[in-house]
């Protein structure tokens, strides 16, 4: 079809401008909602315990450093400043739902208590975030099980290996395992380690995601 008035370039230009004008009037696609959640799946998942991760398991993953996940500390900034899990970022419940996190990210939530984390978990799940877990016991659990684990003083030979591992993990994070005998702490093990590193990690200005662990995502050109 030959158009007597405009060349093909001119017609394409006009077409582009028309699309531009439509875009001017269209709604903002970044604010569109894409949530399509299956309520049955959500109910099933909310009853399962597999969404919890034990503090020691998280500690092992952090040491191994070969998994990519984002740890989100939901407590208030004051508590976060005092101490948190290594590489955790501090987000309020509001930030959490503002698209700070990506849907396919592996997310681990922690808080003072599991109820707050569970609420956040449910909110994220209902927004179709795929892989959300909760640190069992929150920051308290981390302190009790990773930083200052209680280790029985009178150990059977069989159990020694297990507790040696816990001790090593604790020391790795700058904690100090406590030896317990008959329910009483008898000694504070410090083995050349000073007070545990209780400060929050410095916010990394250079990188928008300080929580990136291990293998970086293969993306971009």
């Amino acid at each position: 079809m030959k158009c007597p008035y405009f060349s093909i370039n001119q017609r394409l230009g006009i077409f582009a401008i028309i699309l531009g004008i439509i875009a001017l009037l269209a709604k903002d696609p970044t604010k569109a909602s894409f949530v399509r959640v299956d309520p049955n799946r959500l109910i099933l998942e909310s009853h399962s315990t597999s969404k919890f991760i034990e503090p020691l398991d998280l500690a092992e993953k952090l040491i191994a450093g070969n998994e990519y996940f984002t740890i989100v500390d939901l407590r208030n900034p004051n508590e976060y400043e005092k101490g948190t899990v290594p590489n955790a970022i501090n987000l309020s419940a509001k930030d959490l739902l503002n698209g700070e996190l990506q849907r396919n990210e592996k997310i681990i939530l922690l808080s003072d208590d599991d109820t707050k984390s569970l609420n956040a978990w449910l909110a994220l799940k209902s927004l179709d975030y795929r892989n959300v877990m909760i640190l069992k016991g929150g920051y308290k659990g981390w302190v009790e099980q990773v930083l200052f684990p209680s280790i029985p003083a009178d150990l059977a030979e069989k159990e020694k290996d297990k507790f040696e591992k816990i001790k090593q993990i604790s020391l790795h994070f700058g904690g100090s395992p406590r030896l317990i005998s008959g329910g009483q702490a008898i000694e504070m093990q410090t083995v050349g380690v000073q007070q545990p590193a209780m400060q929050a990690p410095k916010p990394n200005v250079a990188s928008p995601k300080p929580s990136v662990q291990g293998k970086p995502k293969r993306e971009g050109c």
Binding site: A26, P29, F34, S207, G220, C221
Partner: peptide, 22 residues
């Protein structure tokens, strides 16, 4: 640009998930 914008408008593409080089 038109592709991304209009696919987003029509609800086929979630623009917030597109990777940007920082």
């Amino acid at each position: 640009m038109f592709g991304v914008f209009f696919l987003g408008v029509f609800g086929i593409l979630d623009i917030n998930l597109i990777y940007f080089t920082p």
